[in-house]
Write a protein that binds this DNA or RNA. Sequence first.
RNA 1: GGCUCGUUCGUCUAACGGCUAGGACGUAGCCUUCUCAAGGCUAAAAUAGGGGUUCAAUUCCCCUACGAGCUACCA
Length: 484
Amino acid sequence: KHAPHPSPLPEQERGTHVRVRIAPSPTGNLHVGTARTAIFNELFARHNNGSFIIRIEDTDSARSKSEYETSILEGLTWLGISWSEGPDIGGQYGPYRQSERTPEYAKALQTLLDTKKAYRCTCPAKEKSTGDIPVHSCACDKANNTTGVIRLKVTPELVVFTDIIRGEIKVHTNSFGGDFVIARDIHDPLFHLAVVCDDDAMAITHVIRGEDHLHNTIKHILIQRALGYSQPIYAHLPLLLDEQRKKLSKRSGETNVLAYRDMGFLPQTMVNYLALLGWNNGDDREYYTHEELAEAFTLERVQKSGAIFSMIKLSAMNKKYLAELSDDELLVWGLHHYDQKNITVSDTTRLLAALKTELGRFASYDVGGTDLCEAMNWHEKSWMPALSAPSLVWKKSTPEATRSILTDLISLLQELPERDFTKATLEEYVMSWIDTNNHGRGDTLWPMRYALTGREHSPGPFEIAAVIGKEDALRRLTLAHGIL
RNA sequence: GGCUCGUUCGUCUAACGGCUAGGACGUAGCCUUCUCAAGGCUAAAAUAGGGGUUCAAUUCCCCUACGAGCUACCA
């Protein structure tokens, strides 16, 4: 009989304390699909006062890289997801890298070999077949080989388990190809074996992962039974889909979570959006803080069908969160984009003021505001726009009228003291001047705004003038006047 | 091909077996407006098809169609 696995926790606590994990393999950056799985796991753990654990699945040493592990953890940290055990912080069930747990797997493999539930097989690797299912059958299980891969013996039977999200799942072992490989060698386990050993050793109570693992779960249950382990509760999440309704992958578009950060998306946007993709609370509510999600989240309300990851909706949500940012947060957000482009910002006060004028207009840039820096270059001190004379004249005006208005506007603004260069005062002052002199609004405001920004699309002229101040405003207006 | 899962507006989704199938994003129109946005108002837009069960089906059951996932000595 297989000896019970040593557990750092008293036996009675096992199973009562919720313990969930995500197990990314460090073969790439943090994928949005992995991020969503992480979010669901973390929310489930928090909702149930349980533990959320990160385990690095690096049994494929050829493809695993430590910089990817760093990047994955950075992505999770940026999202604001917290874990109580993991490769970076350790924990009482460690180590949390599969490459450091080989002795555990060797022990389990030896047990399976000793109890004849697995055997070594020297047959060549199964060829990929396009037609019928290739069923592995050979005489290796009788040959007592001392070399070769290790296969688990599979007897024909119907395996049934209950998935919290999709109910009873039944798969007959005949359908997946006979005895399957669980290790290349006693010290070189495959994913299936390692997962089962770790989930047991780490006292994982609920395995919450993508639907693409549904068939693997059958294999895992078979290994658990052979090893005498108890079976965790399973919940298979619907997949994240691309526009073609295929599983979201690198070829679908950007899948790296950190790339979304660099595009201008906020972590609260990502968490909120991803959590609502496949889960809802049964009502119309769409906006939740991380805490509110943890409070409300249950696996029973997770959707069964896959959901398309939409940048459009993500952007709409991001706009809303951007508008809620405090000054400090907005500045940090803005500076990140200048850093991305290696642009040094000389005056952060002016940058913040400029960002505030652009708030609510971010949709007019590429998704997430990638060309925001260029659109806002008007805020820099002493910056001079590249103006074109035709653009300076409003569509219903003439160069002559524009020239005359600019002449008067410049002398008008010269009389206004610097401290009155605020949006409200400027607006009141200039608008009443327009009205009393019967200038057209467009005839005045268009050239004023264009002169200050060099752009046909921008925030309003008074907001702009308030940000750049009297000196810059007059310099740019004079420049504009000169080209007509 | 086999196995498994799935199917409500274009998308994300709501609806103890019971109002006119609701909301959000997107789209279109109008208002506002110096521009692009934002904001306000309005509109178009869905229960895949066919059988059952029931007084009553988006909801329960069956079949079909379609879609997806899996089908490695990757994870």
